[in-house]
Design a protein around this nucleic acid. Structure first.
Length: 454
RNA sequence: GUGGAAGUAGUUCAAUGGUAGAGCACCAGAUUGUGGAUCUGGCUGUUGCGGGUUCGAGCCCCGUCUUCCACCCCA
C-alpha cells in the first residue's frame, strides 16, 4: 500500500457529541471517588445491584410515551424490538423491584453506580453520557429512612473530599397541601415547574408567570410568599413554621419535616441543610421530601446530587405499593465542577506512590525485588523501564505526579540500602533500609492518597 | 430539538484577501552529573471538515461537525 492510499484509508478518530473519553488524569479521581462511595454505601448496609443498560422503550417511558420530555436514546434492535438506553437508574430500579419482589426482603437498601444516557444538548457539566451514583431505601415510609438518606448524602460528600456544598430541601407533599388550601391543586404540576425557576429567573418573572397561570394576583402572591425566604439565612425551623401556617396548620407533612430536622440536629449535621421551598424537582413521582445539592462556589453549575421520596415508585409495573426514598450523585458534573475549582481531588491524580529509577539496567532484578517488597506492603510502585538519563526520569515521575523516587547507587546495591528522594521537597534520604524507606513514603503519602487512587 | 458565539502547532495566543508566526512544551546534542539553570540545533499545522466566490481564502459566503452559551429539562 502506498503512503498516499494508506493516509486516505485512516478513519478520523472522534467521539459523538456529549460523549467523552477519560484520560488517566480524570479517570483516576473518578475511580477513587466511586471506590470510596461504594465502601461508604456498604458501611450503611446498602447492597449493589446491576440492571441492563438497554430496556424495552415501553418499560422506561410507560405506556403513554412522552419521549420528547425524556430525550431518550431509542431505536429498533436487530430483532425489530423497540429499545432504549436507560436515562436514569431509578426507573430501571422500579422495574427491577416489581420483577423480583418475591426474591427481595423489605426494607431493601441498594446502591447502583453506572452510566446513563440522555439526548440533551450538552453544556459544561452536562453530557449525553454520564455516571450516576444512586442509593435508595425501599419499603419504608418514615422520617428515619428520610433521615438516613440525607445523612448518607452528607457523609458521602465528606468521603468524596468535597467541601463547600449546601443541601436544599423542600417537601412536595407540604407544598401540595398548601396548594390545596389555595384551591390550586389541579395546577400543581405547572405551578411546581414555574416555582422551580425561581433560582434562575428571579422573583419578578416567577410572579408574572404565576399570575398568568392562576389568573389571580392574590394567589400568585401567596405562592411567591411561600417559596421566598425572608433572607438566605432564615433558620430551618422558622421556614418550616412559616410554611406550615401558610398550608393551614400542622399536618403529617410538616410533622415529618420536624422529625427529620430533629434527627439532623441530633446528628450534628444540620448546618449543611437548608429549607428551600422553591426546590420542587421536575419529576412527578416525588411525593415527600425533595432535595438538590449546590456547590457554594459554583451555584450555576446546577445540582450535583438530588432526589426525594416517592410513595409509589413501581406503580407502573406492579399493583403493590412500594414507598421509597433515594438520592443520586451526578459524578461527571461534580468532577467537571471540581476541575473548574482547581480542586486537589482532580489535580493530584498520581499513578504511583514511588518510582524506582533505572540508574543502571544491569541491576533491574534488584529494582524488581525492591518493588515486590514495597508492593506487598501496599505501596504503588512503578519501575522506570527505559534506560534514559536521570533528568528524563525525574521529569517522567513529575508528569505522573509520583511523589517519591528510589535511586540506587553502586554502594546501595552492594549494601542493600536505598536512597529515597522526595520529589516535591527534593529532600534526599541516604542509606535507608527498605523498611525505613517504606515507612518514610507511607508517612507522607497516607494523607494524600486517602483520595488518591486506591 | 431551537437560537447565538467560537474553532489556527501538544498548549496559550498572533497573522489590512497576498509566502501561517511567537512564547511555553517537546526532541537531539553540549554543559551538569542523584533533574529542573544555561547554550546550540530541531520538530510540530491538509488554519475542525466539505464546497463556493476570487488571479489569490486562516480571513468573505454556504453547508457540516464539535465546543461553549441561552431556551427546555435536569445530574
Amino acid at each position: 500500500m502506498s503512503k498516499e492510499t494508506k493516509a486516505k484509508s485512516i478513519i478520523e478518530p472522534r467521539v459523538l457529541k456529549g460523549f467523552r473519553d477519560f484520560l488517566p488524569s480524570m479517570e483516576i479521581p473518578k475511580k477513587a471517588i466511586t471506590n470510596n462511595l461504594e465502601k461508604h454505601f456498604r458501611s450503611y448496609g446498602f447492597v449493589p445491584i446491576d440492571t441492563p443498560i438497554l430496556e424495552y422503550t415501553e418499560v422506561l417511558l410507560g405506556k403513554g410515551g412522552g419521549e420528547t420530555d425524556k430525550q431518550i436514546f431509542h431505536f429498533k434492535d436487530n430483532g425489530e424490538r423497540d429499545v432504549a438506553l436507560r436515562f436514569d437508574l431509578t426507573v430501571p430500579f422500579a422495574r427491577f423491584l416489581a420483577q423480583h419482589q418475591s426474591e427481595l426482603s423489605l426494607p431493601f437498601k441498594r446502591f447502583h453506580i453506572d452510566k446513563v444516557w440522555r439526548g440533551e444538548n450538552p453544556q459544561k457539566g452536562r453530557y449525553r453520557e454520564f455516571t450516576q451514583c444512586d442509593f435508595d431505601i425501599v419499603g419504608v415510609d418514615n422520617a428515619e429512612a428520610d433521615f438516613e438518606i440525607l445523612s448518607m448524602m452528607d457523609s458521602s460528600f465528606s468521603v468524596m473530599g468535597v467541601q463547600n456544598y449546601q443541601f436544599c430541601i423542600a417537601h412536595r407533599g407540604l407544598f401540595n397541601t398548601f396548594l390545596a388550601h389555595l384551591g390550586l391543586l389541579e395546577m400543581s404540576v405547572e405551578i411546581l415547574r414555574t416555582v422551580d425557576k425561581l433560582r434562575k429567573i428571579g422573583k419578578e418573572e416567577v410572579q408574572k408567570l404565576l399570575h398568568e397561570l392562576t389568573g389571580e394576583g392574590e394567589k400568585a402572591n401567596a405562592i411567591l410568599q411561600y417559596i421566598s425566604k425572608e433572607d438566605e439565612k432564615e433558620p430551618f425551623l422558622t421556614t418550616l413554621d412559616r410554611l406550615t401556617a401558610l398550608a393551614g396548620g400542622e399536618n403529617p407533612h410538616s410533622e415529618r419535616m420536624r422529625t427529620i430536622y430533629s434527627y439532623l440536629h441530633e446528628a450534628g449535621i444540620e448546618e449543611h441543610f437548608t429549607f428551600d421551598p422553591s426546590i420542587t424537582r421536575g419529576l412527578d413521582y416525588y411525593t415527600g421530601i425533595v432535595y438538590e445539592t449546590f456547590l457554594t462556589e459554583l451555584p450555576h453549575f446546577g445540582s450535583v446530587c438530588s432526589g426525594g421520596r416517592y410513595n409509589d415508585l413501581a406503580g407502573l409495573y406492579t399493583k403493590e405499593e412500594l414507598p421509597g426514598v433515594g438520592s443520586s450523585i451526578g459524578l461527571d458534573r461534580l468532577l467537571a465542577a471540581l476541575e473548574e475549582l482547581g480542586s486537589p481531588i482532580v489535580s493530584s491524580a498520581s499513578s504511583a506512590d514511588v518510582a524506582i529509577f533505572n540508574t543502571d539496567v544491569k541491576h533491574f532484578s534488584h529494582y524488581d525485588r525492591i518493588a515486590r517488597v514495597m508492593r506487598k506492603d501496599g505501596l504503588r510502585v512503578a519501575i522506570y523501564l527505559l534506560n534514559k538519563k536521570i533528568g528524563v526520569q525525574y521529569k517522567w515521575a513529575e508528569t505522573n505526579a509520583i511523589p517519591f523516587a528510589v535511586l540506587l547507587s553502586e554502594d546501595d546495591v552492594l549494601s542493600s540500602t536505598l536512597t529515597v528522594k522526595n520529589l516535591r521537597t527534593r529532600e534526599v534520604h541516604n542509606a535507608l533500609s527498605i523498611e525505613a524507606a517504606i515507612a518514610l513514603i507511607r508517612k507522607s503519602t497516607r494523607r494524600l492518597t486517602t483520595l488518591g487512587g486506591r
